[in-house]
Nucleic acid binder design. Structure first.
Length: 233
DNA sequence: GCGACAG
DNA sequence: ATCTTGTCGC
């Protein structure tokens, strides 16, 4: 327990207002590595997943898991129980979730080779979504897989699993709409930092052999919800 | 100006 | 995100 994840979010320097958060994202964007290429999807051995579950009273549970990239079995997991002061503001999700997610990651025994986020990377108003933030912070290749579209344009991918179409913002490519299951709504893949879009797409598809969402996200989601329900006992 | 808006 | 019944389908 206690794996290095790179720099930690500085509690004293953490934005408290919307304006400060936006300014922080503008600086953060410059530090991101959008090319990678990052780990070869066929050579990766471990993949990390993170997610957060919330209670009505503001309590939260952040979960971090590590899966064997071949069997997709969970080989390591960690949770952080805490709270957030930062409200949910579209475009500023990272400032609400990231400190708790980072805490959960520090509780892992094994450092994953790549991390999958539940949300956006550069498919974001300031190209600085949760996956960009986490990738820069940890130094671990990171990308995002979101369930719903925000401000980008895209054409509907073909019906079969593996089909994808580009996500664009003002003509700029910021990710892909990827069909992970035949005839099921696509997910939205975008790079965070330390990995290229081709590898991120291939990995997302490989991590979702049976369901719409990657197993990393499913495992982290289940763990967070379970621990939140057990809380207060 | 108003609404919509990752999770 | 979270709150929720029944319902359709494998």
């Amino acid at each position: 327990m206690g794996v290095r994840i790179g720099a930690e979010p500085d509690a004293d320097d953490w934005p408290a207002t919307e304006a400060e958060a936006v300014a922080a994202q503008d600086r953060l964007r410059e530090a991101a590595d959008l090319v990678g290429p990052g780990p070869d999807p066929d050579q990766v051995r471990t993949v990390g997943g993170v997610d957060v579950a919330y209670a009505d009273d503001g309590d939260l549970v952040a979960a971090a898991v590590v899966l064997d990239a071949t069997t997709l079995a969970v080989v390591d997991e960690s949770v952080h129980v805490g709270r957030t002061d930062f409200p949910y503001i579209p475009g500023l999700l990272a400032f609400r979730e990231l400190p708790s997610v980072a805490a959960a990651l520090r509780g892992l025994s094994h450092r994953p080779e790549v991390i999958v986020c539940d949300g956006y990377g550069v498919a974001h108003p300031r190209r600085a979504g949760l996956a960009v933030h986490l990738g820069v912070l940890t130094g671990i290749p990171c990308f995002g897989v979101a369930k719903t579209p925000f401000l980008f344009d895209y054409a509907e991918p073909e019906r079969q699993r593996g089909a994808w179409t580009p996500l664009t913002i003002d003509g700029e490519q910021v990710g892909r709409a990827l069909r992970t299951q035949d005839g099921v709504k696509p997910v939205f893949v975008s790079v965070g930092s330390g990995i290229g879009l081709d590898n991120a797409t291939a990995l997302a598809l490989r991590l979702a052999p049976d369901y719409r969402q990657p197993e990393t996200t499913r495992a982290a989601d289940h763990l967070a919800r379970q621990r939140l329900a057990e809380r207060a006992v």
